[in-house]
Nucleic acid binder design. Structure first.
Lengths: 238, 238
DNA sequence: TCAAAAGTGTTTTCTATACACCCATGA
DNA sequence: TCATGGGTGTATAGAAAACACTTTTGA
């Protein structure tokens, strides 16, 4: 087989930023790296691109291997390429970011990888350029969540409005007026109110809501405004 | 030197989507590919990632080689990875997209590459998956330009409001009310009115404006609303 | 009975949109 | 002088924001 001549071939790693929300904190799923270099240090879950798969395939494969989850929100974010980012040899890193419901994950945790959730505000040092990757993901999430109903991916099937609001407030580190927030969220028609109440958070109990999948898909691309515009952060690219 | 074992290394191509606006049409700069496969067919300008450069370096190098331009708006867009996208061997394609002022380019065209501007609405068939790349870039530009003053990158130093409006109308294939558009654009404080007029488009002449670089940088991340919200298109990612 | 969280409306301000006429000039 | 494109203001409707009290109930 003919090949392009005189060109250097490199390894392609796919790294997954897996984010969850536990009701009060954003969390990142990390693994303890099992091989050199930087063995035992914390790292994003990743792997090398295989000959017959696309990057999307690889990211899904990696995510599935670690969490057992499929049909997760997963999006290609950016490709990192500093020549010395991996000390062993040149590897370019394609980063995906995933949003998952922590509860779903906990049922099928795969502990072969020594995985652990870390609060975003309290991350350990990470190998290579993984900290930069996480920082970019957070910036991007803040940007995107201000415009699209993406954060719903982090919630269990049933959730309450106070939970939803806490999630937005956590991401933007701000307080949002309850009445205005409720009105905006409900006016999107994405939510369906259930009869049942969640009594774990208060004595009175808060009504559960579920996603109207139909409306969710239809409105996903629409520009929504769940958070006050002064809180809308910088764009994902500089 | 130790390497990771049992892994496949692949070529990394960097392809540049170079967009311009000529006053009435969006144009894409293409080259006639000089080597097999698909020799003589039209293609995005690209090249292989070299051992000591980052992807950003590579994209700038390629852009510079073709257009002679530096300090151009250039952004990494997406990495394409279908295993058979290049028939010769496996190559993953990192796509950058660039916005340039066509006038500036024409002064220093490098014709070693048989480059030519094609109107976006009248593109030739492209090699490999380059058409998909262009389509994604257009979607992304429509999305981003609705929120950030990115289109200014396409304009010469001095331009008129009718030219600016035509650029927005062209991208969204719509008509915008002149009075509302003017008010919104000027309220951003990004523009500075010059005394001079452009007489090429009409007898009365239209005032030239220039960018207030200070304000431009400050407001770039701000969410602007130059175009009516019904025209805001789907997001860049699905 | 009271502490703690949930739920709910109204007023005001601001922003978006719709809409039409006069101006300047070169041919 | 007139045809062509450039420039400008106002009124209306809709959305965002500010703001406080009542309800429920388990401890």
């Amino acid at each position: 087989m003919i090949k392009y001549s005189n060109q250097t071939r490199v390894l392609v790693a796919v790294d997954c930023i897996i984010l969850g929300f536990d009701g009060s904190d954003y969390k990142l799923l990390l693994i303890q790296r099992g091989f050199a270099p930087e063995k035992e240090k914390w790292s994003l879950m990743g792997g090398f691109l295989q000959p017959d798969e696309t990057l999307d395939n690889a990211a899904n494969r990696i995510l599935q291997r670690l969490t057992g989850l499929e049909d997760v929100y997963l999006e290609q974010m950016h490709t990192f390429s500093k020549p010395d980012r991996d000390p062993i040899e040149r590897v370019i890193g394609v980063v995906y970011f995933a949003l998952i419901d922590i509860k779903k994950y906990q049922q099928q945790i795969n502990d072969d990888f020594h995985a652990r959730w870390f609060a975003m505000k309290d991350l350990p040092g990470l190998i290579f350029d993984h900290e930069e990757m996480v920082q970019m993901a957070l910036t991007k999430l803040r940007y995107k969540a201000a415009l699209h109903p993406i954060l719903f991916e982090l919630l269990p099937e049933k959730f309450t409005l106070p939970q939803l609001q806490a999630m937005y407030e956590g991401l933007y580190e701000t307080k949002i007026d309850k009445r205005n927030f409720t009105r905006k969220v409900l006016s999107s028609n994405i939510l369906r109110k259930e009869d049942e109440k969640d009594k774990t958070g208060s004595k009175k109990g808060a009504y559960f809501y579920t996603i109207d999948e139909e409306q969710y898909k239809e409105n996903f691309q629409t520009i929504l405004k769940f958070i006050p515009k002064n809180e809308i952060p910088a764009a994902s690219e500089s």
